[in-house]
């Protein structure tokens, strides 16, 4: 089987499973909106303040939502033995893991990207800022999924796995948070955006190359 076919097969399978059990997906999506909304309510009705703090709120909520989504990334497959089969097949594990991460991003990251402009409107962003917010999240959320997968793989089967994964991975999310919110803030005050976005692209390429390797290595150790 060619590698592209593997990727498609794994992504398709994960999406089918997500459709079968929409509650997991919905929880993450609703958490993202609710958490942003809670901040807005807590801050109060001052529109200028909301505009200033909106970027950070939306980005931090995306970070937390992506941590929340990690719980079922590998544990479901581990329970029914699919993960061990993935380790045994001749096809490279890194590619299969990359496909799993892509599938995970499509069902948890992409909805966040698509809904973010509407949240931006609630915080009073300009059209340009909305576009930059969505595109920075489009570049940033895959990095979150890639890094998060590493955390999920490291803590697979460990007691208190999700909390532990959050402790391990949230500090590593900080560079993404920084450049993502810098880009959107630059769009809000009307300065140049592309340099921040290109740094996000650099981080994304970096994570795309390294994260599947670390995930495979951790899973091999975990299921040894």
């Amino acid at each position: 089987m060619s590698l592209t076919l593997i990727v498609f097969a794994v992504v398709k399978r994960d999406m089918q499973q997500a459709v079968k059990r929409p509650s997991d997906l919905l929880t993450v999506f609703c958490f993202f909106i609710l958490s942003s909304g809670l901040f807005a309510i807590g801050i109060g009705p001052d529109p200028e303040l909301q505009k200033n703090i909106g970027v950070g709120v939306i980005w931090a909520s995306a970070l937390l939502a992506s941590i929340l989504a990690l719980g079922e990334l590998f544990s479901g497959d581990e329970r029914d033995g699919v993960l061990e089969q993935m380790l045994l097949v001749p096809e490279p594990l890194t590619v299969i893991m990359l496909a799993k991460i892509i599938g995970h991003w499509v069902v948890t990251g992409l909805p966040i990207v698509l809904v973010s402009p509407f949240l931006g409107i609630f915080f009073g962003f300009s059209t340009n800022a909305l576009l930059v917010l969505a595109s920075s999240l489009l570049l940033g959320t895959p990095i979150l999924s890639l890094l998060g997968a590493v955390g999920a793989a490291l803590t697979l089967g460990v007691r208190g796995a999700t909390a532990l994964a959050a402790l391990l991975i949230l500090p590593l999310y900080i560079p993404v948070l920084v450049f993502g919110s810098l880009a959107t803030n630059a769009a809000l005050i009307g300065t140049e955006v592309s340099s921040h976005l290109s740094l996000l692209v650099a981080l994304l390429i970096f994570a795309l190359v390294l994260a599947p390797l670390f995930v495979s290595a951790s899973l091999k150790v975990a299921l040894d």
Partner: peptide
């Protein structure tokens, strides 16, 4: 802290 906690919890 993560390194220490992860090592201790497995």
């Amino acid at each position: 802290i993560g390194y220490i906690v992860l090592g201790a919890s497995i």
